[in-house]
Write a protein that binds this DNA or RNA. Structure first.
Lengths: 333, 333
DNA sequence: ATTGGAACTGAATAGCCATTCAGTTATATT
DNA sequence: AATATAACTGAATGGCTATTCAGTTCCAAT
């Protein structure tokens, strides 16, 4: 905001307020303007650098845990966000989102294609990416809609808001995430509209996703899968999922009936994207995350300290090691 | 205030608030404390220097006018305070008091005797001298009470509040400023209690006073003198007064009936005090101020820009020069 | 001089922050 | 262990600040 305020007046107000500790009404009296204008003068003082506020560095990331993760897993970037002790999950998500956004932002290119998935953690992070910083991307929805309702955490909503924030355009996958059978899926995929998105998957420059565990699945919560379905998936080796694509402990896609019923970015396509950022706060999804990393599905992991520690506890390498949950090591493909 | 807050927590809160622009409720959520505590954490951050706020220098004094005054008059220190253009008198007083206090404070010693007079300008300045900075003075009331009411601008009130602010003790002149005749005054002066104060006048280390003009006299406003009295005083050469002591254009005390009816510090005693600070905002008392300076009654002048300019307009030296008001140059003693 | 748009202004007020209060927890002392 | 004292804590709230609104002033282009 360009103003005509004189430096003299701005400096006088700034001295009275910041140096002498006079409140804005008092400053207003001495400077002979309204209190509202004093508030504006002070804002100008900060903008012009007449008033400077400096803060000692605070390191919001736990470097030790990051190093531990990089050593134990084959991971490009690990961002382990410090959180308040005993914070509830909701707060951990918010913290990881807030701090994570500051480090994820530079990983997302200025132009090109960004694939985006849904999820609460992704929402927290995406919602704190910088506003209109000159970026202009094609954003594509990485998975169809889970159900007919659209929540603030759904990919369709996150994509919309990111495009609004940055410019560019948003391409939706106007299909359900899961359809009844392969034939239905194939007919959806035949649509030109869908193919336009599909084609973008193969040349995306970056992706922002969450990772789902077999426990507390959002698909079950929203009635798309049943507890029995989950049991069935687990029997077939499923350890976690990204965009409804279930993978085993090595990160290879499981051969299940759902594999040919899902409409979302494929794991092979995902692997080829140069920058895949996964945001997975909390300790409950450690096995799914470990599997995703083993399968080289993600390049960057954003997580909290508890989550990182849980992950390190299962550090044993590809295909070996004990697992806490009941996933068996059976794998196809 | 000594606290047990960890630097880690303080730094986290400071970063979120000052760097990331999160409000205190948002910080409270992420740090997992109450908003009240965030406010305290931020206060600690500023105290500990984790957050530093620096402000470009603002020069609140008009150096050119100060130099002009020092050149034109024989004045130890001139403090010309910049004020907002077209500010009403009340605001000019407040500004001169606020800024003046910062420069007058170091002129007042840590111990010894300070004589204090009343007046609105003195009140504004005295009220902004620093709190409990280790000073401990004997403060003496330089003139008796003007009338039976005690206003916030009266010496007795200012002395009391300064002692409360600094420690030390306050000695009042429990007499009227003007008594009916010489005999009454002499009987007052015979009191041991009064003499104790009188004696302090002769060895005061500093004084803080105002200067009264013949126009708009506080004595008239409070019914102690009449308009006729003022005319009479002017006929006898009175140009202004300090503590009810009327002086002519050369700053010499006028020989008038009121001279032997006033109970206040004498002008000779005042001249001998090493540091006499006069606070005289406004352009209306220029002649009185000029006279006081010529008579070497004051060492330091605190004034606003308009006042300084008015003073420079009558710069002509001791005893000479034109005068705007109708004061004649008649003088005794 | 007229017009149109941008910048500015203070009053009102919504929103944010600092302080008070009453109760709790830590620390020092017996 | 018992007690006293100081430091800390969050809910409530009063006070302070930032923003909105409905004009007003300034400036550039007719």
């Amino acid at each position: 905001m360009n103003t005509r305020y004189t430096d003299e007046q701005v400096r006088f107000a700034a001295k009275l307020y910041y140096v002498d500790g006079v409140n804005q009404s008092g400053v207003a009296r001495l400077v002979q303007v309204s209190q509202a204008k004093v508030s504006r003068l002070l804002a100008v003082a900060r903008e012009r650098g007449i008033v400077r506020i400096s803060v000692d560095d605070y390191e919001p990331r736990n470097g030790d845990l990051e190093k531990g993760l990089r050593d134990a897993f084959d991971l490009g970037v690990a961002i382990v966000v410090k959180t308040a002790p005993n914070a509830p999950g909701e707060v951990v998500r918010a913290t990881v989102g807030h701090i994570g956004a500051q480090y994820v932002s530079p990983l997302i290119p200025d132009s090109g294609v960004l694939a985006i998935a849904g999820g609460r953690a992704v929402r927290e992070l995406a919602g704190r990416l910088p506003e209109r910083d000159g970026r202009r991307l094609a954003i594509v929805q990485a998975m169809g809609s889970i159900d007919s309702s659209v929540g603030t955490e759904d990919a369709i909503e996150l994509g919309r808001s990111l495009v609004q924030r940055w410019g560019g355009f948003f391409m939706t996958l106007s299909t359900p995430a899961f359809v009844p059978n392969k034939r239905t899926r194939d007919s959806f995929l035949a649509f030109r509209q869908i193919q336009a998105v599909w084609e973008r998957f193969t040349r995306a420059n970056a992706a922002l996703v969450g990772i789902g565990a077999m426990e507390a699945s959002a698909f079950v919560a929203r009635g798309v899968l049943t507890a029995q379905d989950i049991d069935e998936l687990k029997k077939r080796g499923a350890t976690g999922e990204i965009c409804g694509r279930f993978f085993d402990r090595n990160g290879d896609e499981c051969d299940t009936p759902w594999r040919e019923r899902v409409i979302s970015i494929g794991l092979d396509a995902l692997r080829r994207i140069p920058q895949v950022v996964a945001v997975v706060p909390g300790a409950g999804r450690a096995h799914a995350v470990a599997a995703a990393i083993r399968g080289r599905l993600i390049k960057t992991l954003v997580i909290d300290e508890d989550g990182a520690r849980a992950l390190l506890a299962i550090k044993p390498a590809r295909g070996a090691g004990k697992s806490t949950s009941g996933t068996s090591g059976k794998t196809k493909r």
